[in-house]
Design a protein around this nucleic acid. Sequence first.
RNA 1: GCGGGCGUAGCUCAGGUGGUAGAGCGCCAGGUUGUGGUCUUGGAUGCCGUGGGUUCGAGUCCCAUCGCUCGCCCCA
Length: 412
Amino acid sequence: MPDDLQPARGTHDLIGEDQRRHTHVADTARRIAARYGFDEWTTPIFEDTRVFSRTLGETSDVVTKEMYTFTDRGGDSITLRPEATAGICRALVTNGLTQSLPQKVFYAGPMFRYERPQKGRYRQFHQIDIELIGSAEPLADAEVIACGWNILQALGVAGDTVLEINTLGDKESRSAYRDALVAYFTEHQGALSADSLARLDRNPLRILDSKDEGDRRIIANAPLIADHLTAAAAGFYAGVQGYLRTFGVPFRENPRIVRGLDYYGHTAFEFVTGKLGSQGTVMGGGRYDGLVEEMGGPPTPAVGWAAGIERLAMLLETPPAAQAAVAVVPVGDAAEAAALGVLQSLRAAGVRAEMAYRGNLRRRMERANRIGARAAVILGPDDIAAGVAQVKNLATGEQEAVKLADIAARLA
RNA sequence: GCGGGCGUAGCUCAGGUGGUAGAGCGCCAGGUUGUGGUCUUGGAUGCCGUGGGUUCGAGUCCCAUCGCUCGCCCCA
């Protein structure tokens, strides 16, 4: 194979089983989300760079080193979206939908981040996404999570995942907690890893997430957000947990859960799995009450999550099967016209049907077998003269003459 | 961005100490021009990732580079 034409680094072609897994994940999510009242939106794959730089946080890795940003021919700074939420909020504002809240949005599509590729991490990857914009109630958080849980159940992967939840509190709680953390970690900075030292002034909350062993010992005694929550924030968090129990969604509190993007507050959660190596987060999200305002709209509460389609597709136990076709097989050139008639009648009846473009009977039967056809409809001159075709079940080998007019109904 | 492992046929892989490349599967053709799967006979697989170096000679040794992969970072 010439190596001058390869897929760009971190991108993948979706073909055959890969595509079927992908489609199954997206279709299942779409179906379940619809039951919860979420409507699908499609927004542009690229946006004005400010849509992301303003909202994701000036210090986040996504903005500082992972965006595909370029200047277009008109001189505008354009960015391939690294995530869906910012674009959805922009669309909400642009279309004046802040006047008709709440909006419940389902989303599926490709995202782009310039990262070092690895299992479950790609430069072009796909997410499904739901956003519930316009409700400040804890019930909204719980419903969004319950919907995600149902999707994982429908995909048959819920058993592989654990829901971990935390609260980041309101602004007041968070800044008090942040101060406490900085004080604590500064006291122990001699023992912190280099990575965590860098996080200390950039994003101290992230230290809680460190995998470094030395860090973990220090983190074990770090202050907890629970002790710095305002009464309102604590009440909100308790409300979310109560509704999760009502919905029957099992969860585990994990005070170490922190979100990477700055716009999150209050509820933060992740569905994690141990089956994908270090890329264990399969679905993650939380509440982002400030984002719509950041985008130029009125103050608007919102909560949502994103899930990686590739990661979910990898967890699928049994690959979705391709739909088996019916192979139409003419015997000799003279039978072609009649065979095409049968072929089209099958398709009109909703049957997946195929006819090879050339080849003798034997070759066409081999091909029917190779494509996994469930049946072959064989038409020879004798059959046509008698107004029938041989319908052969390729699994059992049984064959029987069927009137041409009855074939479509027989195989539908 | 940092560290480890790996790039040989379409796929999975074998090729001690350097001597011009192999297997299985798949593919193509015949046995079988009105019947697939099983069987059988034959055939083609290839810039040994790419570039450079050492050598009489490199798939094999060295350097670089690209890609894949695992971990860190980050995140879905």
